[in-house]
Simulated scan of single mutants.
Amino acid sequence: MKALVTGGAGFIGSHLVDHLVTEGIEVVVVDNLSMGKLTNIKHRNQVKIHIEDVQNQQFMQQLLQTERFDYIYFLAAVASVADSIERPAETHLTNHTAVLSMLEYIRQSKLPLKQFLFTSSAAVYGNLPELPKRENSQVDPLSPYAIDKYATERYVLAYGKLYDLPTVCVRFFNVYGPRQNPSSPYSGVLSILTDCLSQERPFTLYGDGLQTRDFIYISDVIQAIWLITTNQVQQQVFNVANGRELSLMTIIKAYEKIAGRQLKVRSTVSRTGEVKRSVANINKLIKLGYSTQWSLEAGLCQYWKGVQHAGS
């Protein structure tokens, strides 16, 4: 079995690559290293790595033709809402065009495939009042990033149905854990919180801190993806989350307790396009056999231990 992971040197991608290797799958990574690092990949001596951009259609098509992948996991993305607002046309090329180009080449070339998994985002739901968010909930994408993710989902599912391709989409909620880069503008809030606590630097709080999120530890994300792969699910969308709504202030208090430190907080106005409340319904995933292995407290403890170990 052979798998392609685009964005495989990034935070989530590298954890997925490591898992696939342990499952005995031959893995090929494509990553331009704009956010990822080769050192993120634990088993990199067992992985074929191409430092290349997914926008390079000629390269990607040649790779697909040569390698004949069984599984394709499309994680490459410009994953910042703020960046997509600043550079909508440029981020669109990675977040939408690159995926569509790959699907079209697979279709035209009639490449055999067991699964094409596209990673979308909870950002597609926007600020609509219905909670928890179900996969069939109304969507209201508020930023170019969220719009691209939703539009690409629609293409991925339509290609599955129209051309009999084994496609599936996952909507990540707020993923955290080791290998997040806190200095990156794309980084999640927990990564930035961890860095501020560790370095005793002030944390910039946007808004009142009452905005809520559904945080999921990286190991549970990999569990979810692997369940979707092994169940050979097709032409569906899955929320990948914990199913628990927590405010940012609640998170800060819990993390201060775990770290045994008080966070210095600097408050400022809310960010444009930011979602106020977010929590997922994960019943579809549970039906596949998913169960959350990591509570927020356990995940934060593990994350903090790793940071302290790396710093010592």
Rank of each mutant, 00 (worst) to 15 (best):
L210I: 01
K2E: 06
G260Y: 14
L75W: 13
V279F: 05
I225P: 02
A158S: 12
L117H: 03
S291I: 09
G289L: 11
S278M: 14
V307L: 02
R154N: 12
I72T: 12
A241D: 08
L103A: 02
C301S: 12
G160D: 03
N181F: 01
R107G: 00
K2W: 09
S183C: 00
N40F: 01
H50G: 01
G289D: 09
F173N: 05
Y159H: 07
V168N: 15
H43D: 13
S14T: 06
K37R: 15
N45W: 03
L33K: 01
P185T: 03
Q46L: 11
A151R: 15
Y217F: 15
R266M: 12
F172E: 10
V99D: 04
V221I: 08
F215S: 09
W226N: 15
K37V: 00
T22M: 09
V81W: 07
P112V: 00
R277F: 02
F215N: 11
L117M: 14
A151S: 10
A123D: 15
S137I: 08
A259N: 09
N32K: 00
A241W: 14
G209W: 02
Y206I: 06
K114C: 03
A254C: 05
L117N: 04
Y145D: 10
S291W: 03
N56H: 05
R244H: 13
G36F: 13
S198F: 15
Y163H: 11
F116Q: 08
Y176G: 12
Y186D: 10
